[in-house]
Computed example of a mutant assay.
Amino acid sequence: MNETDIATFWDRLTNIGAGLLGTDNGAARMVPMSHQLLEGDPTIWFITARDTDLAEAVEHGVQPASFVVAEGGKGLYAIIRGALAQNKDPALRDALWSTVADSWFKRGKSDPDVGILGLVPDSAEVWLTPTSGLSFAFNVVRAKVTGEQPDIGSHGTLTQADLVRRRAAA
């Protein structure tokens, strides 16, 4: 994937609200999670309760994990693998806090059950597809007429260097 594709990946990921997050070793099953990105930071952040399988799985150290995103309307399908860890920094919690997070915790961001998890990506298998059904339909019809394969977007594997370098430049 080229630099434009990598930038598109981060842009689309920013505009998708949730995906499935779980540990690769089975310590925590995949569950729907909303995520946030901070400018220039390749870490994908999650706010969760400390008593969830995910939070408990990383309570004593970093775990290999995967975050799966499938959003046809945004034209992004991805499996993002990396290291999942807890972060107890109150300044980070404040930076990530939102109205949505506030609705889950009775005492707001000061609730002792608030947990922050960060996934530092080391690779991503990414499919970028047209973001409109009309564009996809046009490509299929054009392929039928020309006899060529339809252009359904781009696909590739991003390395940790790709992910960190491009996200830091954003």
Rank of each mutant, 00 (worst) to 15 (best):
G22R: 04
A124Y: 00
P112W: 04
P90T: 04
P32M: 07
S154M: 05
R93P: 04
V69W: 02
A7K: 15
T43R: 09
T129V: 02
R107C: 06
A57E: 05
V145E: 13
A70D: 09
D53H: 10
G22A: 08
T129I: 03
T129M: 00
P112A: 09
T146N: 11
V141A: 14
G40F: 03
D41F: 06
T8D: 12
V100G: 05
V62L: 11
N87Y: 07
L54N: 15
D151H: 13
L158D: 02
R12L: 04
N87Q: 13
I80G: 00
E39K: 15
R142K: 15
G82Y: 01
L96N: 07
A65R: 09
V68R: 05
G61F: 08
V58A: 12
S66N: 08
V31D: 04
F46A: 07
I152C: 03
L13G: 01
T99W: 11
L21R: 12
L54H: 15
D151L: 00
A124T: 03
A49F: 02
L163S: 00
E39P: 12
V100Q: 11
R50E: 14
R81Y: 07
T159Y: 08
F138H: 12
V145A: 14
W45Y: 14
L134C: 03
A168V: 15
G118I: 04
V140R: 07
M30G: 00
W45Q: 04
P121C: 06
A168D: 09
V62Q: 10
L128S: 02
P150Q: 08
V164H: 15
T43V: 12
A83T: 10
G153Q: 02
F9Q: 01
R142Q: 14
N2C: 04
G73D: 10
M33Y: 03
T99R: 13
V62D: 09
Y77A: 01
G61D: 13
A101Q: 08
R29Q: 10
K106Y: 02
F138C: 00
D11N: 07
L38Q: 11
S110C: 00
P32Q: 09
D102I: 05
V58P: 06
P150E: 07
F67Q: 04
A28Y: 01
T43S: 07
G108M: 02
E148I: 03
D11H: 15
L134G: 07
N87H: 12
N25P: 06
R142D: 13
G73Y: 07
S34D: 14
A101E: 06
L37I: 00
R107H: 14
Q160Y: 00
A55R: 03
V62H: 09
R12K: 08
L20Y: 08
P64H: 09
L92R: 13
N25Q: 04
T8P: 01
L13I: 07
R107S: 15
E39A: 15
A7I: 00
A83Q: 14
L38V: 09
T131W: 04
T131R: 10
E56M: 12
T159L: 07
G73C: 05
T43Q: 05
Q36D: 11
G61E: 11
V69I: 15
A137C: 06
G156E: 08
D111C: 09
T48I: 05
F105K: 10
R81H: 09
